[in-house]
Amino acid sequence: MIEVVQSGLFTTVQDKGRWGYQAYGMPVAGAMDRYAHRAANILLGNDPDEAALEMTLMGGTYRFRDAAWVAVCGADMQGTLDGAPIQNWSSLFVPAGGELSFQYAAAGCRAYLAVQGGFDVPLVLGSRSTYTRGGIGGVEGRALKSGDVLKHGPAGAGRVSARTLPADLVPLYGGEVVLRVLLGPQDDFFTQAGLDTLFGGRYVISDEADRMGYRLEGAKIEHGKKPDIVSDALCQGAIQVPGHGMPIVMMADRQTTGGYAKIGAVIGPDLSLLAQAKPGDAVRFALCTEAEAVAALREEQARYAKMAKLVAAERQPVGNTRAYRLTINGAAYNVTVEEME
């Protein structure tokens, strides 16, 4: 059991999302940054799509009633375990009674805290993801609040060790984000000048940027036809451009349908980077081809495979293993003791 001492600014349980019900108007939800979310699960030997906590801008404090292996990936929220700094993009052992605490995101926007065995909240339409606007999934369909108690799966699911992902698997946050875009389905609603504006300009993320969508500010994108369409479906990353000419990128909690023309869509692998950008950060759009988008997906999969291989190499069956936490002169160490054959 994990006790929520402080919830953080906006912390929700998320898995890969509630796919399969968009025909009924049910938004998908799910982790905003699927890369960091999956990395945290893979570090623990979990199913990559297992439910984890998504903390936003400011993390919380969580007390572990039972010992557990956890992993932290994504935004750097300066995590500590009983006051001692922990490394981001890492797995670590939390002893019974241990307290994990997170601060303001020094880099990035969303941090993921995964636990071995996953967070055990009820499945709603096949997913544990929280969709707060609809009040479903996660913990009572809402963001966590202090006093909540979360169950997690059995910790003995497999052997894990404390490890940090190598630098080549860790994305850098901050600076201008370049988002690759596939045109469509309504790029013909815009003039060539409008398309040139989108791909030539720099856009700044406004204060209206949440799990539903990111409203951007910058040069006005010119429509060739009226901006309104007879509503059709909104894919993840869809770039809607209403009459005011400012793009809105649709994110995890996006509504399933919309009535504004969509000039294109940010490709899936790049949405993880956008999810880590904050209001005030700048983005640029780069036109990409279908082949480039599929290659980017393959590359993303290759990174997961590489992580899984690193973790599997450490999971050879051995004798009994015990994890201890030692404090020497005020510094905390996680120690694993193995029984030799």
Binding site: P185, D232, K262, A265, E290
Partner: peptide, 18 residues
């Protein structure tokens, strides 16, 4: 047949409500 991101295919029959 139109694209909606790398994992979306739109099959569009018209642009009116009928």
């Amino acid at each position: 047949l139109l694209a909606a991101g790398e994992q979306g295919l739109v099959v569009e029959f018209g642009d009116t409500i009928s």
